[in-house]
């Protein structure tokens, strides 16, 4: 019952969608009623298409996101704490991240072709930004007092990074990863819209090109709900990790 009340807003939204389509507030040619979408969703589940395409997408998103978290966090901390890294790398990061990743296609195809590699690269580039910014801002915000006292106690550079800088960067970093997690779902679709043989984006693109909007929105909602589930899981995990900070 509690969960029911908790997710009631989504039900309200769903009802609004259904009403908008049924009352012709928006042409049902562009936005089919939600009940039709759900019907298509059941079909897509039954013939296994969602599963096959979903697995291909999630694999790419997971690899891209994992790369973004590792590289992004390293880059962010390094840019905050090693001046040469900041000097050399930050202009490149600053130039590439406000670029729409789909605009980079002519560049990435030269280098990686049109296979999995280019899609993972696009997801990686898009997800890296919030992680890097989070790690950078967090690491720069670490309390000088802590750093000084750690240094006076003779902590080595690496130890200090690990024991002082990283923990204090953690809340911002974790929030950055949360943003990246959400973006990875959007990016997996947009990277597969361009060129693909399989995946959620492939389904959305090919169904959209044919005007099968009910099935297309069924895939869109599936991606949204997978993102939702991933977000909830992530929040539960980080709440544990951050317990020391808020519960004191």
């Amino acid at each position: 019952m509690r969960t029911l009340i908790r997710y009631l807003p989504l039900a309200l939204l769903a009802a609004a969608w259904e009403a908008a389509a049924r009352l012709h507030l928006v042409s049902s040619l562009a936005l089919p009623p939600l009940t039709d979408v759900i019907g298509s969703w059941i079909e897509l589940i039954r013939d296994g298409e969602l599963l096959v395409n979903g697995l291909a997408s999630l694999y790419r998103a997971a690899v891209g996101l994992a790369l973004a978290v590792v590289v992004g966090a390293l880059l962010g901390v390094m840019m905050a704490w090693f001046r040469p890294a900041n000097t050399l790398l930050s202009p490149l990061v600053e130039i590439f991240y406000p670029l729409p990743k789909s605009a980079l296609i002519p560049v990435t195809v030269i280098w990686l072709g049109f296979g999995d590699g280019s899609k993972i690269l696009l997801i990686f580039l898009g997800c890296m930004l919030p992680v890097t910014i989070g790690a950078f801002n967090g690491a720069r915000g670490s309390e000088q007092v802590l750093v000084w006292s750690a240094r006076s106690m003779g902590a080595s550079r690496l130890r200090m990074l690990w024991d002082v800088v990283l923990p204090s960067a953690m809340p911002e970093l974790l929030n950055g990863i949360r943003t990246a997690l959400a973006l990875s779902f959007i990016l997996l679709v947009s990277s597969e819209l361009i060129v693909a043989q399989k995946g959620f984006g492939y389904l959305i693109g090919s169904l959209g090109a044919n005007g099968s909007y009910d099935a297309m929105y069924a895939v869109v909602l599936t991606v949204a709900f997978l993102g939702f589930a991933a977000d909830r899981l992530y929040l539960a995990l980080t709440r544990r990790a951050l317990a020391w900070r808020y519960d004191t």
């Binding site: 049109f114 060129v195 090919s206």
Partner: peptide
């Protein structure tokens, strides 16, 4: 068989022997 979003991507792919 590969799906492309449209002509621009198709031409890019042909030019790159993809």
């Amino acid at each position: 068989t590969v799906r492309y979003q449209g002509t621009p991507q198709t031409i890019t792919a042909i030019a790159n022997n993809e």
